[in-house]
Design a protein around this nucleic acid. Structure first.
Lengths: 348, 348
DNA sequence: ATGAAAGCGCTAACAC
DNA sequence: GTGTTAGCGCTTTCAT
């Protein structure tokens, strides 16, 4: 029915005041066992549930957290957000998931809007690293770090992107690559920088000289952009003839790897025979795309879990033990970096 | 800062009552041009924004709509939800996106929880087709139909899945397939049934006899499930030797097509040379996977647009003109259904 | 252990 | 055109 039962009605039926009912619901003590039972029974019977809006108005806080995500259609973020949401729900919180489209302006707008919905905290996958709009409200940065050096801004939970980049680079080298392209976006997003830095470590370790790799910068991580960039590249550089041609491509996200693969496929360049390829995130894309793409696995579940746990602690006034969690990553090796010799062996 | 400016303060500063400020904000008339300007200026200056919680409590309605989605990590749903959210935001609404995991129980729980947050309406991508929990609140069903025959339950906006199924089946036949497998899930989800029905139309039209296709039922649409099912199938049936072997596979979602492709890849069965494959949804997956998978395109933007428009009309008390929108679909033909002869020609 | 009462920030009669 | 007032449903002192 359209009629929702209120606390007042429960109180009347139980012959107590609303104050008592409220105390019982919030387990604030100062009520007898008997009244508790009576009230609880009525609540169940009448299927009463507190009006969160009223509660929110009174307490100036609502059991809702705002989740800001750059792009929900990115499988990596989708997994992350899904996990965050289910964790929050289990703890009695709802969340408002908002897409920022990587737009700073949108991010500010949303933050502003959410504050006026009295959300009790934020989980941010943010491209920006400082928001005065959220000051004083608990916030956790996931996947991308908060502004460095500012301890008040909240906790950061991220994967070890540097090591991830290292692993990707290493895979390529071990698969025999000696002329490598790195595809990444212009920063803003520190992860990109970190992954690249990791790649450089790998190059250093294996003695690959600077002349033997090349960096291509993209506008964004979309499949489309990577596709275009790779197509352009293929037009300008002949690929499979010269002995000095590119034999490995590291991308900083699976989506980029997918775009690259599509361009290669179209040009008749084979993966991994002609060129090896790595992605990042270990999303479904990496599994599906082409022959299967070697990718760097992040522990998304763990990230979500930590984010929620940390946020809730913060909301309860607990000072976080650390302001920075760095989660381990691993390489999920697939056919896209199978070394030549292995393929030959299979054929032989 | 932590201090938020209230309506009362604005009223005091403007030397008017809160009622007047309220009227101005809600454009309810009965105020002079001068006071309006004065108040508006103050609002801007102080960066005042109404407390939505208080407003919601008073009006028993909040500018928030609940969006229920089976699985946000499904790219099709991700696109849909993203589009819905951005449309709503532009119109001043926020939305609470909730993942149901296709679980009826979860759906009920969420509906219940959202009602007590005073959401003003629902957009449902629901597997269930009737919810008493949402009665009396405006609701729009997207992508999957509401219970047939019940006019009060809300508006349904869906793609022409029957025609989509027809197009997919037709593509396979035109590509020369004569022994086809259909992979679908057990219903609950009417779309699955519709797509299959469309497939049957195609078979009928092209005179393919019943003995020449086979239906495999899966538990869910996940990549993994489809992968397992296909692997099993390949174990039990030798594929590429007999002249009567399967030469076409229609799946009812792109994710299933992806799973099928992975199994085929592993078994060394080539797409499209040995077997043709179609998906449904025309998501990124279809583009990326293998040689590119022919898929049925749905107009997600349009779906979202209609959903939001219809919901808002409903919330404003406008009776919908129709309870059922059927959106056209089209086939996006890719390499996975390239006919043999065409390939031969390329090679020649 | 329980109740009365005030009030969170806003809207909507109703009065003038 | 503007102010006064009474709540929306809940929490939380402060009494008792």
């Amino acid at each position: 029915m359209g009629t929702t039962v209120t606390m007042k009605e429960i109180a009347q039926l139980a012959h107590v005041s609303t104050a008592t009912v409220s105390r019982i619901i919030n387990q604030n003590g100062r009520y007898s066992k008997e009244t508790e039972e009576r009230v609880l029974r009525l609540i169940k019977e009448k299927q009463y549930a507190p009006n969160q809006t009223a509660k929110g108005l009174r307490t100036r806080k609502v059991q809702t957290v705002g989740v800001l995500v750059p792009d929900i259609t990115n499988p990596h973020f989708a997994r992350l957000v899904q996990s965050i949401q289910s964790q929050l729900f289990d703890l009695g919180y709802t969340c408002i998931i908002c897409n920022t489209g990587e737009q700073m302006e949108m991010e500010e707008k949303l933050l502003y809007a959410l504050r006026h919905q009295n959300v009790c905290g934020f989980i941010m996958i943010s491209s920006k690293r400082f928001h005065k709009s959220l000051c004083s409200l608990p916030a956790v940065y996931v996947d991308r770090p908060a502004q460095e050096g500012d301890e008040n801004i909240g906790v950061t939970i991220e994967s070890d992107n540097v090591h991830g980049g290292f692993l990707a680079g290493q895979q390529l080298v071990l698969a025999g690559c000696r002329k490598i392209i790195v595809m990444r976006t212009y920063s803003q997003d520190v992860n990109q920088e970190h992954r690249y830095r990791g790649f450089l470590h790998a190059m250093e370790k294996y003695g690959i000289r600077e002349a033997e790799y090349e960096v291509v910068h993209l506008e964004d991580v979309s499949i489309k952009t990577a596709y275009s960039a790779m197509s352009d590249y293929l037009q300008k550089h002949s690929f499979s003839d010269s002995s000095r041609s590119v034999d490995g491509i590291m991308t900083t996200t699976d989506s980029m790897a997918a775009g690259v693969f599509c361009a290669l496929r179209e040009a008749g360049v084979r993966v991994p025979e002609d060129v090896k390829l790595t992605g990042f995130d270990d999303s479904d894309i990496a599994q599906i795309c082409g022959p299967g793409i070697t990718s760097i696995h992040q522990d998304v579940q763990q990230m979500a879990k930590l984010a929620v746990k940390t946020l809730i602690s913060q909301m309860n006034g607990v000072k976080p033990l650390t302001h920075h969690y760095l989660l381990p990553v691993s390489a999920n090796v697939r056919a896209s970096t199978t070394s030549f010799s292995a393929i030959e062996r299979m054929r032989g």
